[in-house]
Amino acid sequence: MLKHSSTSGFLDFVYDFYKGMKEHEITLVYEGEINHQIMKAFTSLAEGHMTKHAESELLQKKVYHVMVECLQNISKHASHPEVKDDTDYNRGIFLVSRNNDVYNITTGNIIKKEKILYLKELLGHINSLSKTDLNELYKKQLKEGHLSDKGGAGLGFIDIRRKTGKDLEYQFLPLSDSHSFFLFTSTIPRK
């Protein structure tokens, strides 16, 4: 009996999940390890989807670019409270949604709390800049920045805002004394 009710509870959840996805017009959702192969698979899926929906080539490129940068962010910065050496811990959630006006690319991953202040300042600063200042910041970082061990150039967030023209949206949800959940959404106008 218990087994039956928990199974039906699970199926109810699956149906609610399906309805939620439809309601929020989510075209792709994933939770798990983010690595290079996964990134290639998702970008290729999205390209297929966009070609099918006859999106302009420029929009396809923008969505593709934001997806690549967001997925690479997770593979470089995700963390976990129960994993001691989290250099290879690359898990997170990844969602793509689309409505009449925009594509949204959303990521969520666990980060160490000590990174929050830095991220808040960085993202806030990027959002505060004019287009010209953003281009200057990009060039400065391109010239003076160094590639990290994980291949990050410190340019991803700057370039996402430049290419989408939209503010970066983000939230930090506390999980424990040491870790928080970092949610990040980029919006790409379809026109």
């Binding site: 670019h65 690549v68 940068e69 391109l142 920045g145 590639l147 340019l155």
Partner: peptide, 12 residues
Amino acid sequence: TYFNTASSKLIL
């Protein structure tokens, strides 16, 4: 046709 931000550094 496309390069990511990490590549942009190496192109420079």
